[in-house]
Design a protein around this nucleic acid. Structure first.
Lengths: 203, 203
DNA sequence: ATAATCTGATTGATTCGTCAATCATTTTCT
DNA sequence: AGAAAATGATTGACGAATCAATCAGATTAT
């Protein structure tokens, strides 16, 4: 009953083992205070092996940042593909999805914040985040526009609504650290929605 | 017309020169990637002098975090002493003040975020921030309560409103990085106010 | 008033430890 | 057997902290 994996598959698995260890430790300890030896230990490989899969500590950090970002991106672009219905419903569902995502990927989000906090140190990664924000604004713009015409949303520029929404998402990860398990996320969703428009009938 | 400073005064000035250099460089480069030699250079003193004013690199970081925090604290406690009037007015003025403060002390706020991102690395400093948040909640609670009775504010627990407000303040520092000069702060203030209650007549 | 002495602040070369990256060797595959 | 992957000891660079030497400015003595 062995898995029977090809060489390439095994390599991929080992690579992602190392990458996940890196995400964990980088997010906890930051770039500078994470030792490659620790990542190797966490991943269950030797020190040297890390360097057969990644060119340098720096390159490993970039991968640890960029690869999960691609995954997260899908939830922030093509909004209208993911969430159907009236603008208010779309936004409600979207927020719910994002809040859940942010509470689950808590660990990775710390890496995002490390990069946001140091644009000069990580210019390439920082630009990726800028593109991400702009992509989100473009994607949500038609939803906001229709919602405003229907009178559900405030008459603010899309970019302001979108950015303040991203701000609260980001900030909440910082402010509500320990309370990740609890039902507070429902409340957060409601507060986030208030940045878009007045809530008429609450759940 | 010489200043005629006592030794103690000179020492104080030198200490604060070093501290300000430290705040600047720690905020830009984080704890681990800031070299004490750089701080010395920035402050215009020799490497060794840094250690006559601060016990260690770590102690200097703690001072760079704690001393400005005391100053910022005053704007987040004794809310009702600083801002008078109807609850809605108090909150409006408070938000305005905080937003301005956050846009001015941009640099120092990065240090706060470094600490928030690494509770295990800086437990003592992290606890200070927790106390700060709780102090703010206590201070704003009576304002919220009265505002709710008057029908201006949403019927949410004070802690939720306060925390989501702190979240958006914090998050905005991350999301609107480069736009610090512009008039966007007025918009941000408006968005922040929406976490408290519906805005009736906009400016 | 001026020189001699004292005090303690300042300096930066040196020390010591840490860690990323390399690479010669061993192990594991086919 | 031969190639590829894994290993970890070694190396070299870097940076925090120390400390012995220097210097400036105040105090005392003549």
């Amino acid at each position: 009953m062995e898995p029977k994996l090809t060489i390439d598959e095994k390599k991929k698995i080992k690579r992602s083992t190392i990458l996940n260890a890196a995400i964990k430790l980088y997010s906890e300890n930051g770039f500078a205070e994470t030792k490659v030896a620790e990542i190797a230990k966490e991943a269950g490989v030797s020190f040297g092996t890390v360097f057969t899969y990644f060119d340098s500590k720096e390159a490993l950090y970039e991968s640890a940042f960029l690869e999960p970002l691609e995954e997260i991106k899908t939830y922030f672009i093509e909004i209208e593909k993911h969430f159907k219905g009236e603008p208010l419903e779309v936004v409600k569902e979207m927020i719910d999805c994002h809040v859940q995502l942010f509470s689950k990927r808590n660990e990775y989000l710390r890496i995002i914040q490390q990069v946001l906090a140091r644009p000069d140190r990580f210019p390439k990664l920082f630009n990726e985040l800028n593109d991400f924000v702009n992509g989100f604004i473009v994607s949500i713009h038609p939803v906001i526009e229709v919602g405003q015409k229907l009178g559900y949303f405030y008459e603010e520029p899309t970019s302001l609504i979108a950015k303040s929404y991203l701000s609260i998402l980001n900030g909440m990860r910082l402010t509500f650290v320990d309370e990740s398990t609890s039902l507070i996320w429902k409340d957060i969703t409601r507060q986030a929605l208030r940045l878009f428009g007045p809530i008429i009938n609450e759940g």
